[in-house]
């Protein structure tokens, strides 16, 4: 099975976001960048399918020279080869989808795996956009995946439950928590990954369809009333919720 895993490079989830001087993006000074946590699930799933069925797992990211770190992490986890598509620093997701589609056309995968969303812009839009561009079925937010004889059965999380979705290969799957437990790269594999080749390509000039005109930290004024655990205070809390905030 030929598996393509699309990964992205995102700020560590513990990052305190500071707006950069351009007013349109975050200040990346001192920010630690990691493989998008949901993409680790996608990598792990690709590796497990290879271990079961044989084949090749390729990881790809759309980024800049900085993105080699996340590709090396993918190599250390065990992917066979990696592709860096060099393009714009902060592309819009259509640009990403178009360029991933171009790589997919070259690599001709049976299965494309991604994280359900990148924890930076949280748009969840690449899997279906990619599916539409490539004319492939896509199933998003998958927490259980079975592939047998080219038939894909996926458990997909929906509001208040899950649904079973079927499709045939080639297919696109986006990974949700619960799909697997990603492995930690071992030190010798991390060392080895440093000398492995990275296939570098130039991004196609796809026009962005959206532009960011401003980024800000949302400020919400909170009442900030702190009470004790006395019975009177508990009653007062309920009174305030009922009469002041009018939420109960």
């Amino acid at each position: 099975m030929n598996i393509l895993v699309c990964i992205s490079r995102v700020p560590d989830t513990a990052t305190k976001v500071v707006i950069g001087s351009d007013g349109n993006s975050i200040d990346s000074q001192g920010v630690k960048f990691i493989v998008n946590p949901y993409d680790e699930l996608a990598i792990e799933e690709g590796l497990r399918l290879r271990e079961k069925n044989g084949g090749v797992v390729t990881a790809v990211t759309i980024g800049t020279d900085k993105s080699t770190d996340v590709l090396r992490t993918a190599l250390a986890m065990g992917v066979d080869k990696v592709i860096l598509v060099k393009g714009e620093e902060n592309p819009d997701s259509f640009y990403v989808a178009e360029n991933l589609a171009a790589v997919a056309k070259d690599e001709n995968p049976d299965l494309i795996l991604l994280g359900r969303q990148s924890v930076d812009f949280d748009s969840l839009q690449i899997p279906s956009a990619l599916g539409e561009i490539l004319g492939m079925p896509s199933i998003s937010v998958v927490s259980k995946l079975t592939i047998e004889d080219g038939k894909v059965t996926a458990e997909r999380d929906i509001e208040g439950g899950c649904e079973i979705v079927e499709a045939s290969l080639p297919c696109i799957i986006s990974a949700q928590k619960g799909l697997n437990e990603p492995r930690y790269p071992k030190l010798p594999d991390i060392m080895k990954s440093r000398s492995k080749p990275i296939d570098q390509r130039d991004a196609a000039a796809a026009a962005s369809r959206t532009s960011i005109i401003g980024m800000e930290i949302p400020l919400k004024q909170r009442a900030g009333k702190i009470l004790t655990d006395s019975d009177d205070d508990i009653n007062e809390l309920v009174r305030m919720l009922h009469e002041d905030a009018k939420v109960i």
Partner: peptide
Amino acid sequence: KPVYAGKAQVKTKVET
């Protein structure tokens, strides 16, 4: 639109 899980938000204009 909230980004970084709501730690920030962006204003976005559609160019198409």
